[in-house]
Nucleic acid binder design. Structure first.
Length: 737
DNA sequence: GTTAACCGGCTTTTT
DNA sequence: GCCGGTTAAC
């Protein structure tokens, strides 16, 4: 029996319709990934298409990874040649090869949100823009939006004639692009926009990719913006074999420029489009699905459709109302603990979803107290942490010395006694000579009025130069180790000896691990390649499905995922829907919020619990919100409202004298035993007292003492170079030699 | 040039 | 309530 027999008629049709434009309207949980993977298999095995000619674009690396694995499972051979990636990685790969055709250097760096903000800060200073009036983030948002719409600085300026404030933004936009180019950097939006520019100005490049990608599939199509649409249509314009999969009801990125018109108007742009609807849901129970259907029906702007399912009716959707955020978190955590205890589910089956990242804190606190393993997705990205950015900035400087931002970040880290005045002088000189900041540093002795400061700069330049000379013979992890050693970064942190510094060291160890993995697993590891990979990961990408922990994340991050047990917290007007949309002129904003709610509900397979709170602390102030309007849109018959008495009972459980500050203290104390459930005490150490061991940073030493503690061994080592150090075995990773 | 103490703004979502 | 920025003291 063929693998295609397991598909329903619509799915099968979508799989077999390989030629020409195809729009698959796939409702939540209707098996679209299944369709896409089978379609790829079908193209290769039944149609004899070369895997090399197939491309599938997804939204996140995680989705791409999963799709690759699933294609791998059903395709005999050649699956590794199918190009499955995200828009951003695809564009980077193209640009690395050809961006010089439109006047850029192929070794560009990629700026993240932090970098963008620092650059913008500089620009505002230079252009004397009052950042109280025009905030950096607002300026960046406007520029980003322009780029999503493929509007160049010149066009922006033309469109702004007569509007003083917009003219000012146009000026900023222009300067921003100039600075990016000077730093040999691109931001996220540039990656797409420049690729489109490249295609438009170099027909031969476009054609080579058109020949390469004869069959193109785009997942989560409802969240593409104009630039991405343009990119895809250019690629597909020759062979027209473009298959897009999306659900207008799940479009939740309009605020970021996603254009729902791309899906609603697809048939207009591509004539002869075949449209297939997938309306059977395989994920959720009848009750959950009915709840989702009823909520989304309150939106006026949508393609009418109703999902149905053969699944069992299941439990009712639970709704619980509490007096405070503490109680809410306590209930959710307690409920998960109970279900786990009763064997109803594993931790990995549970997810807590909320509207804003700030809501995660209370849950974290309770999970820690309950000793339940959890993983927080989003919030401060791993790669956005100070210690990580510092070290990466060293690597970036080694890789691309034109990146002034990176150089300026690290010039005084660790402290070299180089202050603001010196930086200003160097910058002046660099601007005068029209050279990069780093090149100016190299000529420090020529800079007037620097005086003694020039001497302080010297060792920094020498360090970078020698790191650079190692670049050819060293792997990325060796280079990173060397940076750590030369800067004494970790040693300083060890000396600091606080909970925080220990957490930072842990992060650095993780970075080293990532670099090592990259060296090992990449076909052709390069420093640039590593930095690029690191720049394009989203937090969700690093979630390991094999780890048994509860996931905490925003509704946006949850898109595309499913869980047996879902908790939607903070169902309050002002939180969800956000107060921003409640006050909005545009009714479309509220509809987007409702779609977000729909996405949240449809993540649940078996149980869905929605919670709200009477009084919530926001920015240190108590706020009283009404129960979310979305709750009232749920059909009564599928919801179990809980009993009123329950909250009184819970109330008495929480001692009233337990002030916020005390709670926080308790949280802090626990929070910095970093991921205690993951730190596994080794049964036995591979070394004992008297052995000679090697440490990544400290080098070789002799083990003087080993003390067994509750969670770990504390090992004392006398190092040849740095003397006696005490450390925990689980993260010191000592090797016997 | 560095550090500690204070002040004000902010938070909706992110590849 | 936190972060980042500014200020004042060393």
């Amino acid at each position: 029996m063929s693998i295609y027999e397991n598909l329903n008629p619509q799915q099968k049709e979508a799989v077999c319709q390989t030629e020409g434009p195809l729009l698959i309207l796939a409702g939540a949980g209707s098996g679209k990934t299944r369709v896409l993977t089978h379609r790829i298999a079908y193209l290769i095995e039944e149609k004899g298409v070369n895997p090399w000619n197939i491309m599938a674009i997804t939204f996140t690396n995680k989705a791409a990874q999963e799709m690759k694995e699933r294609v791998d499972q059903i395709v005999g051979f050649g699956s590794e040649s199918v190009w499955v990636t995200t828009f951003h990685s695809t564009c980077v790969r193209i640009l690395r090869r050809y961006i010089d055709r439109i006047g850029f250097d192929n070794r560009f760096t990629i700026y993240d949100a932090d970098d963008q903000k620092s650059l913008m800060k500089d620009i505002c200073k230079r252009l004397q823009i009052d950042t109280k009036l025009y905030k950096e983030r607002a300026l960046l948002a406007q520029i980003s939006h322009a780029k999503d719409q493929l509007v160049s600085p010149e066009e922006f300026e033309l469109n702004s004639q007569g509007d003083y404030s917009k003219m000012r933004v146009a000026e900023v936009y222009k300067e921003y692009q100039t600075q990016l180019r000077r730093n040999n950097a691109l931001d996220f939006d540039d990656l797409i926009m420049k690729t489109v520019e490249l295609f438009q100005s170099c027909p031969e490049v476009l054609e080579s990719y058109q020949e390469r990608f004869r069959y193109i599939m785009v997942d989560e199509y409802q969240d593409t913006n104009l630039a991405q649409f343009q990119f895809v249509s250019l690629l597909a314009s020759k062979y027209q074999n473009l298959c897009v999969v999306g659900d207008d009801d799940q479009s939740i990125y309009k605020f970021r420029g996603a254009n729902i018109e791309n899906i609603l108007g697809f048939e207009r742009v591509f004539s002869n489009t075949k449209v297939i609807r997938l309306e059977q849901n395989y994920r959720s129970t009848k009750n959950i699905l009915q709840a989702a259907n009823e909520v989304i029906q309150n939106n006026a702007q949508r393609k009418p459709k109703t999902l149905w399912t053969d699944n069992e009716e299941g439990n009712k959707v639970h709704f619980r109302h509490f007096l405070s955020g503490f109680e809410e978190a306590e209930y959710v955590v307690g409920d998960i603990a109970q279900k786990h205890r009763e064997g109803i589910c594993s931790y990995r089956d549970c997810a807590v979803l909320y509207r804003t990242n700030a809501q995660s804190r209370l849950f974290e606190e309770k999970f820690l107290m309950a000793n339940i393993p959890y993983r927080l997705v989003g919030g401060v990205n791993f790669y956005a942490r100070k210690e990580i950015k510092d070290l990466l900035s060293y690597l970036k400087t080694v890789d691309n010395a034109k990146d002034d931002l990176a150089v300026r970040r690290i010039i005084n880290i660790p402290k070299r006694g180089i202050g603001a005045t010196t930086l200003l002088r160097v910058q002046e000189y660099a601007t005068e000579q029209d050279i990069s900041f780093y090149d100016a540093l190299k000529e420090a002795e020529k800079i007037p009025k620097l005086g003694r400061a020039a001497v302080k700069i010297q060792p920094f330049v020498t360090m970078i130069q020698s790191l650079r000379s190692e670049q050819r013979s060293f792997s990325v992890s060796e280079l990173l180790d060397d940076v750590i050693e030369r800067t004494g970064y970790v040693q300083d942190l060890i000396a600091e000896d606080t909970d925080e510094s220990r957490a930072r060291i842990e992060n650095i160890d993780e970075l080293i691990t990532k670099a090592t993995t990259y060296d090992k697993e990449s076909e052709n590891p390069t420093l640039g390649g590593f930095l690029e990979e690191v720049a394009l990961v989203a937090d969700i990408d690093t979630v390991d499905p094999n780890q048994d922990h509860v996931l905490l994340m925003t509704l946006h991050s949850a898109k595309g995922l499913e869980f047996s047990q879902v908790y939607l917290a903070g169902m309050e007007d002002g939180i969800f829907p956000s107060y921003m949309t409640i006050g909005s002129e545009d009714p479309g904003d509220m509809e987007e919020e409702r779609r977000l709610c729909y996405v949240g509900i449809t993540r649940a397979m078996k149980d869905l619990t929605m919670t709200s709170v009477q009084q919530r602390m926001i920015r240190g102030q108590a706020q009283y919100n009404k129960v979310s309007r979305f709750i009232y849109e749920l059909p009564r018959e599928v919801v179990d409202m809980g009993h009123k008495i329950e909250k009184k009972e819970i109330k008495t459980e929480v001692p009233r004298n337990n002030t916020y500050a005390q709670m926080r203290e308790a949280f802090r104390a626990k929070a910095f035993q970093p991921r205690q459930f993951e730190v596994k005490k080794a049964d036995k150490l591979s070394y004992e007292v008297g052995d000679t061991v090697r440490h990544v940073k400290f080098g070789v030493g002799i083990v003087k003492n080993i003390v067994e503690g509750g969670k770990d061994y504390e090992v004392t080592v006398d190092f040849d170079q740095v003397g006696v150090k005490k450390m925990f075995a689980s993260f010191a990773k000592l090797k016997k030699i």
